[in-house]
Simulated assay, not measured.
Amino acid sequence: MSIQAASNSEKPPQEDNYQPPSSLSSLPDDVVLNCLARVPRSDDLNISCVSKTLRSLVRSPELCRLRSRLPKKSLYLFYHFHQDSKRCHWITLRRGEKMITSTHDYQVEQRSCSLAGLLTSPHFPTFYSSGVSVGSEIYFPDHGWPFPSTKVRVLDTRSGTIRMVPSMKVARWAHKKAMGVVDGKIYVIGGTYGKNQVEVLDPETQTWEFAGEEKVQCNSRFSAPLEDKVYMVDLEHGRISAYSPREGINNVATERLIEHMNCMCVVENVIYACFKRSGLMWFDTKLKVWRRLIDSGGKATLCSFNAGKMAEYEGKLAVFWTQINTNFVEKVDIRCRIIALDRVGEEIRGKIESSGSVATCSYSITLSHCLVVSD
Rank of each mutant, 00 (worst) to 15 (best):
Q107N: 13
P166Q: 01
A174R: 10
D142Q: 10
N306V: 08
R163E: 09
C361K: 14
Y231K: 02
T53N: 10
V182K: 06
T360Q: 14
K288M: 10
H369P: 00
R221V: 12
M232K: 01
I47R: 05
M1E: 11
S74F: 00
Y139D: 05
Y79M: 02
P13L: 13
H237N: 15
V252S: 05
D284H: 10
N8H: 10
T103N: 08
K73M: 07
R69V: 04
I100A: 13
K331Q: 11
V170F: 10
L317R: 09
I91K: 08
S355F: 09
G212S: 14
F275T: 03
E259T: 01
M168N: 06
K185G: 02
V132P: 01
S220V: 04
P61F: 08
G308T: 03
G96V: 01
R292M: 13
V58R: 08
V32K: 04
I339P: 02
G190L: 01
K169D: 07
I162G: 02
E199Y: 06
G212L: 02
T205P: 01
Q110N: 14
E314A: 11
K309T: 00
S25Q: 13
T254E: 14
F222C: 07
S9L: 15
I294E: 14
M164H: 06
F78I: 05
A5V: 11
N196C: 15
I324Y: 15
D16T: 05
R111Q: 13
T53D: 08
K177T: 12
V319M: 07
T103D: 03
V266K: 13
L75T: 05
F147T: 08
L155F: 01
T322M: 13
A116R: 12
E353A: 04
H82R: 12
E268R: 15
S223R: 09
V58M: 09
M164I: 00
N8V: 12
D44Q: 03
W290L: 06
E137T: 08
I138P: 01
F328C: 12
K98S: 15
G345M: 10
I338G: 04
P21R: 06
V188E: 03
E213R: 13
E346L: 11
A6H: 10
A116G: 11
I258M: 12
D284L: 03
L54S: 05
G315F: 11
S56R: 14
P20W: 07
E199G: 01
G160P: 03
T101A: 11
K286G: 02
G298A: 05
W321I: 03
P61G: 07
G131I: 00
T161A: 07
R172G: 06
S355N: 12
Y106P: 05
R292F: 12
G180R: 05
F147Q: 12
V39E: 03
K151F: 10
R163M: 07
K176I: 00
T207R: 15
A178Q: 04
M264K: 04
P21A: 03
G190P: 06
V170P: 03
F81W: 11
T326C: 12
W208Q: 04
T254D: 14
G190R: 03
S42M: 12
G212V: 02
R292N: 15
R87W: 15
A224C: 13
E214S: 11
R158P: 00
